[in-house]
Design a protein around this nucleic acid. Structure first.
Lengths: 216, 216
DNA sequence: GCCCAAGTGGCACAACGTGCCAATAAGTCT
DNA sequence: AGACTTATTGGCACGTTGTGCCACTTGGGC
């Protein structure tokens, strides 16, 4: 029952993951899609772990080998965007100011690149509306926050205040989370004004400027 | 099983809560203390709901009438600080800049006023170290964030961008959360450098200044 | 072929959380 | 005070969750 502790980030991957590993990841994703469909259709509460397992063509026992908690079955989908964000940021030019690199990668990762990304976005919306997934959602962001913190630390000169690094990562993650939650609660489309990338950009700018509202 | 949805904030309390209500709240707190002691002693995992119930002198069934999830039994303790924070902010002079009012109430609510407050702080630390309480901890902050958002909205002129208000509340809550987590992870005492109020003040200042690190 | 490791399924089981109903306690009215 | 209504409690049954254990299969390397 010990919840989803994401694998510790061990730096850029060396060599290609083993075949078995990739098969496992594929199964993982397949279960995630099955679970998302069921959750979106009848809600998390009314969906049993056994149903997800059977619909995925595996046994209940095996399901719990992939996800230690029923709700976490959709975590790979909810976490995908955040991973893209941090990865893109990590790969961005180091001569760019941090705020600019963060902003660009955020907007990019919030913009649906293809149809499947757009579909994932819609799924995110319906999943976010189910309060039983609150925990999973928060854990996903805790993961993003930690990953971003590590990347950010690498980018900073040694001796930078750890508190400062952590806060910067937390604040950026919060901006993205607020943007996504605001969008999920609205009925705005996935592009244009009110879209995640629009709200995300505004939130990031607001933070960079030092929260104008606080000066009021 | 539907997790802890805190009662919606219905403005300043009119009249005194009924006798029964106060009795209920007292029981609630008593259970919370019992649970905290057990959780801190042997961990959340190794503590059953029934043990908490019996140690509190109630039946298992009644326990679940007070808390819909075992972990939430300590929520009242974890949430107390946040409530004080928001309440103090709500009561602060309106001619003070928001950032200053936020900062002062934060520092005040993070400073142990008496012995029992200091004790609660130590409990918070041990509870925060149990990963099984992550969910509860996050929900507590989601609650703080929402309460703060409401209070903040009342303080703002009508027509203020709701996104801006929400982000401001979220950012402030994040600052407090980071400060507390950093403290809980360290071995710093509850007062002086490295204490929650010290870290909290630094985080708030950092946010107000617009996250210097982002400019790097 | 054999061997070893990883993955899978089945089964039993403690714990979780809820619905339901009877018993009790608290508050109200005459 | 007694009768009546309402909230709170406890007990019980039940479906679901998540885990430990072991036997079985799969696949890759020798």
């Amino acid at each position: 029952m010990s919840q989803w502790h994401p694998p510790a980030y061990a730096g850029p991957v060396t060599g290609r993951p083993t075949l078995n590993q990739r098969r496992r990841d594929a199964t993982r994703l397949e279960i995630a899609h099955t679970a998302a469909a069921l959750f979106a259709e009848r809600g998390v509460e009314a969906t049993t772990a056994e149903e997800i397992a059977l619909a995925s063509g595996i046994s209940l026992r095996t399901f719990y080998r992939y996800f230690s908690v029923k709700e976490d079955a959709v975590a790979p989908l909810l976490a995908a965007g955040g991973r893209r964000w941090v990865d893109q940021f990590a790969a961005s030019a180091t001569d760019l100011p941090v705020r600019e690199a963060l902003r660009r990668s955020a907007v990019a990762s919030l913009t649906p690149a293809d149809d499947s990304a757009a579909e994932a976005m819609q799924w995110t919306r319906s999943l976010l509306r189910d309060p039983r997934l609150d925990g999973t959602w928060q854990r996903v962001h805790a993961d993003s926050e930690e990953r971003l913190r590590v990347v950010l630390a690498e980018r900073c000169p040694n001796g930078t205040d750890p508190l400062e690094i952590r806060l910067a990562a937390a604040a950026a993650t919060t901006a993205i989370r607020v943007a996504l939650e605001e969008w999920a609660g609205s009925d705005a489309p996935a592009t244009g004004p009110g879209s995640p990338q629009d709200l995300g950009a505004r939130c990031m700018d607001e933070l960079t400027a030092g929260l104008r509202l606080w000066a009021a």
